[in-house]
Nucleic acid binder design. Sequence first.
RNA 1: GGUCGCGUGGCCGAGUGGUUAGGCAGAGGUCUGCAAAACCUUGUACAGCAGUUCAAAUCUGCUCGCGACCUCCA
Length: 486
Amino acid sequence: MQQPLYITNSLTRTKELFEPVNPPYVGLYVCGPTVSGESHLGHARPYVTFDVIYRYLQFIGYKVRYVRNITDAGHFEEEGREAEDKVNEKAKLERLEPMELVQKYTNIYHDMMDALNCLRPAIEPTATGHIVEQIDMIQDIIKKGFAYEVNGSVYFDVTKYAQGNDYGKLSGRILEDMIAGSRDLDGQDEKRNAADFALWKKAPEQHIMRWNSPWGEGFPGWHIECSAMASKYLGSPFDIHGGGMDLMFPHHESEIAQTKIATGCSPVKYWMHNNMITINGRKMGKSYNNTITLREMFYGGNDVLERSYAPATVRFFILQTHYRSTLDFSNDALQAAEKGLQRLLNAYDTIAKLNASPASSVSIEKIESDCYVAINDDFNTAIVVAQLFEAARIINSAHAGTEQLSAADITRVKKLFDDFLFQIMGIKQVQQDNSADLNGIMDLVLEIRATAKSKKDFETADKIRNTLTTLGITIKDTKDGAEWSK
RNA sequence: GGUCGCGUGGCCGAGUGGUUAGGCAGAGGUCUGCAAAACCUUGUACAGCAGUUCAAAUCUGCUCGCGACCUCCA
């Protein structure tokens, strides 16, 4: 079980042996959502992915500090006008403060993460709660000569940084190409160089979120919050920084540059990036008009997919793919995942009904070891799932009598599901209502039905079965008598 | 335009030099009063072309197609 763990490091584009900076402690930072809107399907991918990573690191004994931020400030510059109008309008209609909106979307996000059974991070810092830390870091960077102030805004001097550091290493970019291909954006004339990025932005008149700073009223730049909060809570360097692939540039590239100047070292040992999701083959986005919020996904109301899907189905679907591959959501694929997960859960329930044989006809140990090999190989949950399906086949075969399992292997296969499906992959175990009352009632009902069947009174037998079905209780007739499940 | 990645059987999706991925759907069978579940059997799969090799889905080159990033984005 204690095999070496390999992680694909985006920085080197290779699989590397995972060796924490300060074992047994592991620092894990994941870029959280911008809570200026409702959580959507795109958010499910990184947070499920890194939830499994968090769970597994703990499972193999590491003491993990998981930090996942909430971006609730800044970042409104590009949307500027639209965001302002929206906020003002809603504030009038609903008497909402801007921070109230942020709180509302944060609450929804938390609810959706709970529904997906993502463990809550150890620390969930907000950008607005760390303005001081960000200003401190910016001042430090200015003092070291890698940032300059213009008209109340502060920019990071990428050109100067690139002279002694390989800016662009993470995202595979060449500075000269970027400068040549850059567009004219707001504030471009203030920058010494097109590739420079803002550490602090002067707040325009209508901008609601604003803070005092040494450079006047403004708000923090696009990337500084993660640098400030990650180094505050995890130090520098720390172990793993995760996020979506779309954040590699410019967000993470800029984080590296800022932190390297501020702390003197490259901030992260292992950069991990999950790939994007698509819907019916297209990237999800407003311009495609195919955005699905998580609430719509779970409870219905979207126009893109034909129906809603349970959080566990979405989670399982995500884990059926390796996190570095794109994942396409479609009705067919989700329904296949839904049935597949049900098959696994049914098999798990069947374990309790197995009769032990003197010896096993198959090796559970082999499946178990294959699961560890897979999860240790850059968290390949797709292969773990395949192994669990093999285990399910064995359980069902043992139940049908075509395979045999010893008492020890029955225990072992149950542990395999407990560990991998529930604990590591975080599929929520359905709470069975196995109260003594219900068991007694069901025993009686099934006995009456068996009597009816023996008298060829199928009308009564079917009525019992059909009525129970409408109550959510499934009856299955086996050669050893009827079984029920809720 | 620049950078990076992908193209696997009806659908989704692992794999990366020689050995069955797996799930869903389909077909046949077993069980069964029926149903459901389950079990057994069943698939010319690796975009195209050329090359390297004893051997390529897996390496190399070219072609075609798709996508991501380059601008807030998970």
